[in-house]
Amino acid sequence: MNTAYLQALEFTFSVTAPVFLIVFLGLYLKRKQHINDEFIGIASALVFNICLPTLMFLSILNSGINLAEQARLAIFAALAAIISFYSFWWLSPLLTQDPQDRGVAVQSAFRSNLGIVGIALCAKAYGGPGLAVGALLLAVVTPIYNILSIYALTKSLRQNEKLQWHRLFLDIIKNPLIVSIACALIGLAMGWQLPAILDETGRYLGSMTLPLALITIGGSLSLSALKKASSLSAYTVFAKLVLLPAAVTLAAWWYGLSGVELGCLALMFASPTAAAGFVMVRAIGGNHQLASNTIALSMLGSAISISLLLYLLRLNALA
Rank of each mutant, 00 (worst) to 15 (best):
F24L: 13
I173W: 05
F20S: 06
A303R: 07
S63Y: 13
S302V: 01
A152H: 01
S180P: 07
F88E: 07
L310N: 14
G103C: 03
L244Y: 00
T294V: 09
H34Q: 09
N160H: 02
L114R: 03
G64R: 02
Q107R: 08
Q100T: 15
L205P: 15
N66Y: 06
P195K: 14
N62S: 10
L148P: 06
L312C: 15
K227C: 08
T96P: 08
S305F: 02
G259S: 01
Q107L: 15
V47Y: 04
S305R: 02
V237T: 14
S298C: 11
T236Q: 01
L315F: 15
Y86R: 10
K30P: 15
V260A: 03
L67I: 15
I178E: 01
L198R: 02
T96R: 04
F39A: 01
K240P: 04
R167M: 13
L265Y: 02
A229K: 07
P53L: 07
A8K: 05
L210M: 15
L232E: 08
Y235T: 09
S233D: 06
L188Q: 06
Q33A: 09
I306C: 12
A182E: 08
L148I: 02
F13R: 08
V104T: 14
W89T: 00
T216H: 01
L114Y: 05
A17R: 05
L210K: 07
Q159Y: 00
A74L: 10
A225K: 03
